[in-house]
């Protein structure tokens, strides 16, 4: 199998301080793999994802992208291999959808040039693949959350990468769009893309992911295929709450968090 990214014993702390966000994490992802990273809020999922394409510098360890050390690669070279969609994009200027998608060609265009006919073709192809070619000239700021997510997906596809890193791609999407996006991701992996994403929904790992990791207390407390990792025990460890697993079909379960009966006195409201 072709290893797209290999992560060896990496640790990270802000400003290289002593307080590690995570330490000694290792894993590797092959062509066509979908790795979903779960974990409670603030556990460092986003930071880990940012380390994988060089947005944050690791403190120790090594990341190999396509066999090459990430540290030695210039930004354009990384972005030809890795497409990244952050969570919570803040928009300023109402660029048209095609302009946003064309930005995906940036690593291939020299600093003083702008997109050519060929780049437009690739960008339009991505829009067409995702079924949003009709949005081509609309300002992306007027789109709904789900539509925007598709535009950003079109942009990373226009980068023609080998690895997609998606930070909570399903957050802010409605029920239907969540599933549609997960199936899109599954289809992309079948075309040979490797995908690493983070999520707050353990169920989602049964839809297309072939690997799951749970990040908690600076390390993966579990890593493996969804059926083995998504267990009552592991989820309890991850979220400190009891979770019921219900089997829907042979390879799909849903996770139902049980009540934890917090009792709080809202003194200010008790009138």
């Amino acid at each position: 199998m072709e290893k797209i990214i290999e992560v060896k014993e990496i640790s990270f702390s802000y400003n290289n301080g002593d307080n590690n966000i995570f330490e000694n994490i290792s894993f590797s992802i092959n062509k066509g793999d979908v790795l979903c990273i779960l974990g409670p809020n603030g556990t460092g999922k986003t930071t880990l994802l940012k380390c994988l394409n060089g947005l944050q510098d690791i403190k120790s360890g090594e990341i190999l992208l396509n066999g090459k050390n990430l540290k030695s690669m210039p930004f354009p070279e990384i972005s030809k291999l890795v497409g990244y969609i952050a969570q919570g994009h803040v928009s300023t200027f109402p660029f048209s959808v095609i302009d946003v998608v064309l930005m995906g060609r940036s690593p291939y265009i020299s600093l003083t040039d702008s997109p050519m006919e060929k780049d437009f073709k690739i960008a339009e192809r991505s829009l067409k693949d995702l079924g949003i070619l009709d949005m081509r000239d609309r300002p992306y700021t007027t789109l709904s959350g789900g539509e925007k997510q598709l535009v950003f997906l079109a942009r990373v596809l226009t980068q023609e990468p080998k690895l997609l890193i998606l930070d909570e791609p399903t957050s802010h999407l409605d029920f239907g769009n969540q599933i549609r996006l997960l199936e899109l991701i599954e289809n992309l992996s079948k075309k040979g893309l490797a995908i690493i994403m983070s999520s707050h929904f353990p169920d989602h790992t049964f839809l297309g992911s072939n690997k799951v990791a749970i990040l908690k207390n600076k390390n993966f407390i579990a890593l493996g295929d969804p059926l083995n990792v998504i267990t009552k025990d592991n989820l309890k460890k991850a979220y400190d709450i009891d979770i019921e697993l219900i089997e829907v079909s042979k390879s799909r379960k849903v996770c139902v968090p049980l009540r934890c009966d917090i009792s709080v006195e809202f003194d200010n409201l008790a009138k």
């Binding site: 947005l55 070279e77 972005s79 990244y84 995906g104 940036s106 690593p107 600093l111 040039d113 997109p115």
Partner: peptide, 20 residues
């Protein structure tokens, strides 16, 4: 000369870096 690339920068530092 650099005006097209300014679009990318106007999306924010992180996005710009992830776009090379």
């Amino acid at each position: 000369l650099l005006r097209w690339r300014l679009n990318v920068l106007a999306m924010g530092d992180e996005e710009a870096q992830s776009l090379g």
